[in-house]
Design a protein around this nucleic acid. Structure first.
Lengths: 348, 348
DNA sequence: TCCTCCTACGTCAACGTTGACGTAACCGGC
DNA sequence: GCCGGTTACGTCAACGTTGACGTAGGAGGA
């Protein structure tokens, strides 16, 4: 064991000296370029092996004409959220096929932090950036984009032009969920949603409105609770719904943590077997609860894969107009979304 | 909007030309080094701002004497596992305080993939590596370590010397869980565990054995099921336990996916209210099931933070002997682990 | 036989930055 | 008025690598 910390990494020069060739020839061998005889190739390979030589990608990308760092920046809201983590995983998988590694960061829905992370990625000269944009201003993203950095937005579209995005069928799927509840006879369907600064939240709310309209139901403001950040806020908001004179017979919860909070409120009042519930976003163990929780499941791997494909196309020089890919969510029926309203409410 | 892709990023030379100073002076200003007058500083700052100059960290770290890339490599088993994701998040948080970004990769418990990822990180000259080691040989890790790369192993210790690690109280906590079950009167306590190639699995099994011994119970081989990879394997293994003449009255499930699988088997047979269950690893919604699932909760943020602190100390040149930090897990009592055995079994 | 072309190398400079070192101007002290 | 020291710059080379280009030698054709 060697207690001195790092020893100097061998360089091409070291390999060249040992193999008695020029560094340029070593470069050719390492990069499998023509112009080196079989015997020289073998000598260089042997020298590299005995020295434990590994190319320095940062030096290489500095000098190279294409300037590729073989590194992708990926900014999420919070890596500890399973949705974000699954997305990262999907992007990483696809990136690996191209020999590309991902630099990951959590922006915590904080514009300032996102800006800092963008700068960090830029100083490292990543080849492109996949971003789950924070709510509100996207100035920093737009500026970065206008500098020419390849960029793809996931889950939330850009508020500016000229940039690819991949999103889910937020609005359509939300409408579908509401229509399913209405189809069962529910007439008082509540909406619980995350921060309205988030595009996804607004879309899902719009879908809710469309669903009500299509079903011929009128919107009741007292059944709508938005800007619920986290399960606790959702839980107390849901609780207030059941203090109403005419409480809802069904809930549409527009984000996974909101769903969890609402479920807690239902359980506290032992309403989970009588009040219907459909949530946006699937989550682990949703099928093991009683009743199983009906959800709109996003195809997260598809979202990530698509985002990676788009960014690699742009990095590869693709010049076509921006693509706004939409990945469908599917309704997974597990029971909670199939509960009918109490008979007293159906015929009213 | 500018449809040509990337334009050339401005360099120090561009800034220098605009500010009418030498590049060295620009370097001084950018890095807040002394030796530049106030007026020059202002001129350079202005020039950098108008050009949108951002330093090239790769060029900088190539030339610098400390060679820091301000980048940390982090290798996990599977980023889509919440445990791994939470760990990454914790490392990332701590790293950000040092202005360091993380390059993340999933090794999928595949030694070959882990080796490739290590090489990828090495060619990018990361400052250090945090690894959740794959089971089996750690040759690749050891080689990397012997080259002098700062390294910390998380969740699983090294099989070689000279490397820091951060782990959980796998053995002690497992013993504690078994003792709790035995204390309730359980005499047939089954063990269900993940692959025995994993150190954590073996430790938890050892803890199980110690718990039995301390409680004066004899090990029954037919109540032990190991090498269960994923919930499905766990589910069918658990099912076979209940076909025994003398089925277990309590289960100790040594990994979160195994716990989930076992729970499914219990529910299928409607045993979840009668057979006790303690699982290793907490998971979301464990409290919302009926009964709530008693678990040994690992302090994942602490694990990640500690790992990051250790790696930064080594990067900073710390030369002390290797640290093997251990973070305690805590027993979270939610009901399933507090179920007593059927009275017919207690007095036998 | 001579000229051309190709192959297999080598040489040189440059990518963007910073460490080492040089130097002119100025300041204070005697 | 001279000297030592400090301040505010600049010059040069180098980090590890590769693009552009040069060249020696051999193969092949006329």
């Amino acid at each position: 064991m060697d207690s001195r910390g790092a020893r100097r990494e061998p360089t091409m020069r070291d390999v060249a000296a040992l193999a008695k060739v020029s560094t340029k020839t070593v470069s050719r061998v390492i990069n499998d370029l023509p112009g080196a005889g079989p015997d020289v190739v073998e000598r260089v390979r042997a020298a590299a092996r005995t020295l434990g030589y590994r190319p320095n990608l940062t030096a290489s990308s500095l000098r190279r004409s294409d300037r590729r760092s073989a590194t992708l920046g990926v900014l999420f809201e919070d890596l500890s959220n399973p949705f974000d983590a699954a997305l990262l995983r999907a992007v990483e998988d696809r990136a690996r096929q191209n020999g590309v590694l991902v630099l990951a960061g959590s922006s915590e829905d904080d514009p300032e932090l996102q800006r800092e992370l963008l700068t960090s990625l830029a100083t490292r000269r990543v080849d492109g950036i996949v971003v789950m944009a924070v709510g509100g201003h996207q100035d920093a993203l737009q500026q970065e984009r206008e500098r020419g950095t390849p960029m793809v937005l996931v889950d939330r579209p850009p508020t500016f032009d000229g940039t690819d995005s991949v999103t889910t069928t937020n609005r359509d799927s939300s409408r579908e969920a509401v229509l399913q509840l209405a189809g069962l006879g529910h007439r008082r369907i509540a909406f619980l949603g995350d921060r309205q600064t988030l595009w996804t939240s607004r879309e899902r709310y719009t879908g809710y409105l469309e669903g009500l309209a299509h079903a011929g139901l009128t919107l009741r403001d007292e059944l709508v609770r938005t800007d619920l950040h986290g399960p606790d806020a959702a839980e107390s908001a849901a609780a207030t719904l059941f203090d109403l004179d005419e409480p809802p017979t069904a809930l549409f919860t527009a984000q996974n943590l909101v769903t969890v909070g609402a479920m807690r409120a239902l359980r506290d009042r032992d309403l989970h077997r009588s009040v219907a519930l459909i949530g946006f976003d699937d989550f682990p163990l949703a099928d093991m609860l009683e009743p199983g929780v009906t959800v709109l499941r996003q195809d997260v791997p598809a979202l990530g894969r698509r985002a990676a494909e788009l960014i690699f196309a742009r990095i590869g020089g693709e010049q076509s107009p921006p693509t706004h890919a939409v990945v469908p969510a599917t309704l997974v029926r597990r029971g909670s979304g199939e509960l009918p309203p109490p008979s007293s409410d159906t015929g009213a």
